[in-house]
């Protein structure tokens, strides 16, 4: 009786993990994990407001804090969206590639009713 229960449980485990096992066996897992490549702006334009790794992780926090300062206190500084767009002129090759990969939609310009100016050139 005990033996049958253990076998049933193992079978259940295999069925449960079947999708993961199949995709691991075919080698697709490694391909799908690759991060998207983005086109960085011209290095002649100078340094970003913070260093690259910090910006990669925290640009949304900086933008949100800047928004709060600008709207509620009228202090318009360097971390504004329009300041970003002065160097990062192409939204499809810079912002969108990562955002599509991560499944994140920034409300500022990407959703349908987005109300802040976004560069839309595709060159």
């Amino acid at each position: 009786m005990k033996m049958r229960a253990i076998i049933a449980f193992l079978a259940f485990l295999i069925v449960l993990t079947l999708p993961f096992l199949v995709s691991a066996g075919s080698g697709n897992i490694l391909q799908s994990v690759q991060a998207p490549e983005i086109e960085l702006p011209d290095p002649e334009l100078g340094e970003c407001v913070e260093d690259v790794s910090y910006m990669r992780a925290n640009h949304m926090v900086l933008l949100k804090e800047e928004r709060e300062r600008a709207v509620r206190h009228g202090e318009r500084g360097d971390y504004s969206l329009s300041n970003c767009f002065s160097c990062h002129t192409n939204i499809t090759t810079f912002c969108k590639r990562c955002h599509d990969y991560a499944g994140v939609k920034p409300g500022c310009f990407e959703i349908e009713e987005g109300c802040h100016y976004a560069p839309t050139s595709n060159d």
Binding site: G74, R76, C115, H116, Y117
Partner: peptide
């Protein structure tokens, strides 16, 4: 969207004169 410095009007929110706060700043 005649002035790109100012955000576009969003549907479903209330708006009013801001004394052109973006210019005053």
């Amino acid at each position: 969207w005649t002035n790109e410095e100012v955000p576009k009007m969003m549907i479903g929110v209330v708006t009013k004169c801001s004394f052109c706060a973006h210019r005053v700043d």
